[in-house]
Amino acid sequence: MAKMTMVQALNLALQQEMEKDDRVIVLGEDVGVDGGVFRVTDGLIKQFGDQRVLDTPLAESAIVGMSIGMAAYGLRPVCEIQFSGFSYQNFHQIENHAARLRWRSRGRFTVPMVLRTPYGGGVRALEHHSESREAYWAHTPGLKMVIPSGPRNARALLVSAMRDPDPVIFYESKALYRAFREEVPEAEEALPIGEPQRVREGEDLTLISYGAMMRPTLEAAQQLQDTDGIAAEVIDLLTISPLAEKILIQSVKKTGRAVVIHEAPRSFGPAAEIMSRLMEKAFYYLEAPIERVTGYDIVIPLFNREKAYLPNTERILRAARKVLAAS
C-alpha cells in the first residue's frame, strides 16, 4: 500500500489497465508529453508510446467523436476533457451519439468509452473552470455518471469505468486532486458502478452526498456526534446515474430524516431527484421534510466569492439541525 493523492491514484488505474488491455487508448489535449494539465496521465506516453496516448488537436467535440468511433470499433478510449466547463462543446456528441449508439443500432454498435473531466470549485480557478453540471449528464438516457470522493475509490471506480460496456462520464473534483492522500493498494481494485456506499453508520439522520462535498458532509456528521450527540448516517453516492436508490431508502426508513448535499445548482439538480425518490418510497417513514444544501441557481462566482457559494460544514449543520428539530 502506498499513500496517494487522487491524481496519483487515477494515474495508477490508467497505467495498470493500459498494461493489461491494449484496447485502452488515452486521448485528449495535453495528455501526452505534458501528462495532462493536472498530471493525471503523467508518464503514460513514455511507457506506452504515442499510439496509446494521443495528444490531440484542440477540439472537444472531435475528441469525443473520435472516441465514439474508436469504441464502436472495439477499443476502449479514455478521453480527457481538460475542464468540464469545456465539455459543453462536446455535449452533442455525447447526447446524440455516445449515449444512444447502442439504441440507434439495436445493440450492433456500443460505446464503451470513458470521458474523464475535472469539475467543481474550490481551487481559485478561472471562469468556466469551476462548474458542477453533473445533472446534464445524469439526465441523459444511456449514460453513466460517476463521481469519486477520494483517491482509493477514484482509482477503483475508474477501473470499472474502463471496463464498463457503456459510456461513462467520470467527474474528478479538482478540489480533491491533491487535497489528501489515502492508502491505495498496488494490487488491482475495482468498485462496482451503480453502488452507493454507506460510509458512516447512524440512527438519527441520513446525509447524502458525493464528490468534493463528502468532506464537509463527513465533517458535519462528526460535529453532530461531538456537539449534539446525534448519530448521522452518511451515504456517498459515487454513481449519480443510474441512481441506485435502495440504500438511500433503507437508510431513510431507519432515520426518518435526510439532508442531500451537492455543489451543483439547486433547481433540477441531483438532490431534486433523490428527494423525489425518497418521497415516493419512504414518505411514511419521514419525520421531517428533507432538506438540501446546494450551490445556488447562479453562475458560480469568480473565486473571491466562491466560498460563499459552495456548501460547507456550517451550512450542512444548519440544515441538519433544522431537519432534526422538526417533528
Partner: peptide
C-alpha cells in the same frame, strides 16, 4: 444492422457523424 455489415445507422444531426469515421479509421 447485420453483423456482416460495418455500417453505422443514419445520423440525423447534421455534420455530427464524420468524426466517427475518423475514430473508426484510426482504430
Amino acid at each position: 444492422i447485420p453483423d456482416d455489415r460495418n455500417d453505422f445507422p443514419i445520423s440525423v444531426p447534421v455534420g455530427s457523424q464524420m468524426i466517427h469515421a475518423v475514430g473508426l479509421g484510426w482504430a
